[in-house]
Design a binder for these strands. Structure first.
Length: 490
RNA sequence: GGGCCGUUAGCUCAGCUGGCAGAGCACCGCCCUUUUAAGGCGGGUGCCGUUGGUUCGAAUCCAACACGGCUCACCA
């Protein structure tokens, strides 16, 4: 590696000795490779010869074939590859000397004319060559490419240069977020940004990251959810708001979890969780039409059609059906605790009744929800920010959407009764005292907002990374995050 | 955190029951004016993850450690 660096540094010095700037400031392009291919790719060899079309373009050398007085290269511009051909008699002596000092990985610009080789490949016959930047390191090996997962994530730029699949995932991610934005803008939602650093972490069940502000000398928490701030905005009269941003949860890393992840949360006054589920269905349908060629998610050799309306099944009904435990038994804390002791003796007992139900749901139900399914009416004990169900006060008007065994969305009719909200927070504090580290804390600032009156509203959060996984067929969340968290090296 | 697997050249990997460190690509030198996994001739560039142990002798066997991967458990 140091040897490579030295060899290439020598070449740069030789280039400078030829009077070139090793790091020039700009290069005037007339087209990128996609445009050139689009414009000339279908033309015949003779037609191109007649046209004598001049172009100026630039890219990174990804293949280099020196053949004496004739040199072929493939350049890559971040999207497409294009061949260029340097012929000794067609360029200045200096330009040809420059070619001899090039390495795979270097960035150059060329001016020339478009033609087709004997084998019919669209190629640029170079008249003028501009050296633009040196690469001191070799690119990944050309046969096997870059397979080392760690290097793919740590040096994502190499992954992007070498692997078209990776580029495709992130183009898709960009497009998905763009569509998501326009979906909400079209419906009159206002995009907002709320704090990422919270004095009190809230809005979700999770352990936070802690940081410190020096001037104020206070600890702050990286947000685990924007929810409590977005609802303050509802109080302030912003009737429809959404935010696309990062959340941070101090938890493990897995195929589906990265400590920082992107969510869209959206809230709308005067609607309830049924309206919200309708909206989520509409959103997923629109996104699938834009991003999935056949309207179906590809997951583990399976095609999962995105075809609303999605089935809606109540949490306790689903849990009873999959666990074989009668619904009324599931409401009995002793019976549930006994079931867990009997069936999952190896596992640590969940600290609270709510956590026990969640535990069983994760074991029995979650993985079975492959086709898009709304699970509704979560127990109140694990839904401290949701309005109670109109039908059963033990339950709430909350839903989660599952696809491919993954939780994708979580929404509810927002609890707007400040006195009830305070009681719910206090219940959470008791849970915390019983060992539930993810239980929420009392947020008096939020309660003060609710005390000023918040209209009925529904809100929902959707995990963008997981959505991108589904829409791109990625097997792990690391594949859809440009720089996933890894243990630092050295 | 538990279980399984791995670590040999810049990359991808061979290296058997212990006996001189290997291949392809990359790289370096030379030749080559339509090549494309270009080709031809020549060149091996190495702390065999680390530290101990067994042995006349260890890349190879044993132990511990480090790093990485897969997987299970938890959080969206």
């Amino acid at each position: 590696m140091e040897e490579q660096f030295g060899v290439r540094l020598e070449k740069l010095k030789k280039l400078e000795a030829l009077g070139l700037d090793g790091y020039p400031y700009r290069f005037e392009r007339t087209a990128d490779f996609a445009e050139i291919i689009g414009r000339y790719g279908d033309r015949g060899a003779e037609e191109l010869k007649q046209a004598d079309a001049g172009v100026a373009c630039a890219g990174r050398i990804v293949a280099l074939r020196l053949m004496g007085k004739s040199v072929f290269m493939h350049l890559f511009d971040g999207q497409e590859r294009l061949q260029v051909y340097v012929r000794k008699e067609m360029v200045t002596e200096r330009d040809f000397a420059v070619v001899g000092l090039l390495d795979i990985g270097d960035i150059i610009g060329v001016k020339g004319t478009v033609f087709k080789t004997r084998t019919g490949e669209l190629t640029i016959l170079v008249r003028e060559l501009a050296f633009l930047a040196k690469s001191y390191h070799p690119l990944p090996e050309k046969w096997h490419g870059l397979q080392d997962k760690e290097m793919r994530f740590r040096q994502r730029y190499l992954d992007l240069i070498v692997n078209a699949d990776t580029r495709e995932i992130f183009r898709k991610r960009s497009k998905l977020i763009q569509k998501l934005r326009s979906f909400f803008h079209e419906r009159g939602y206002v995009e907002v940004e709320t704090p990422m650093m919270h004095p009190i972490p809230g809005g979700a069940a999770a352990r936070p990251f802690v940081t410190h502000h020096n001037a104020l000398d206070i600890d702050l928490y990286l947000r685990i959810a924007p929810e409590l701030y977005l609802k303050r905005l509802l109080v302030g009269g912003m009737e429809k708001v959404f935010e696309i941003n990062r959340n941070f949860r101090n938890e493990g890393i897995s195929l589906m979890h990265n400590p920082e992840f992107t969510m869209v949360e959206f809230y709308e006054l005067y609607s309830d969780f049924n309206d919200c589920m309708d909206l989520v269905e509409r959103l997923l349908l629109d996104l699938s039409r834009e991003l999935l060629p056949d309207g179906a998610i590809r997951w583990q050799e399976r095609a999962i059609p995105v075809a609303p309306p999605f089935p809606r099944v109540k949490f306790m009904e689903a849990l009873a059906a999959k666990s074989g435990v009668a619904q009324e038994q599931l409401w009995d804390e002793e019976a549930v605790a006994g079931h867990i002791r009997g069936h999952f003796p190896e596992e640590p007992a969940p600290p609270t009744f709510g956590k026990m139900l969640e535990f069983l749901f994760d074991r029995y139900v979650e993985k079975t929800l492959v086709d898009p399914t709304f699970v509704t009416h979560y127990p109140k004990a694990i839904s401290p920010l949701s309005k109670a169900s109109r039908a059963d006060a033990r339950e709430t008007e909350r839903f989660e959407l599952f696809i491919a065994g993954m939780e994708i969305a979580n929404g509810f009719s927002e609890l707007n009764d400040p006195l009830e909200q305070r009681r719910r927070f206090e219940a959470q504090v008791r849970d915390r005292e019983r060992g539930d580290e993810e239980a929420q804390r009392v947020d008096n600032g939020f309660l003060l907002a609710l005390e000023h009156g918040m209209g009925p509203a529904a809100g929902c959060g959707i995990g963008i990374d997981r959505l991108v996984m589904l829409f791109s067929g990625a097997a792990t969340i690391k594949e859809v995050i440009l720089f996933p968290l890894l243990r630092p090296r050295e």
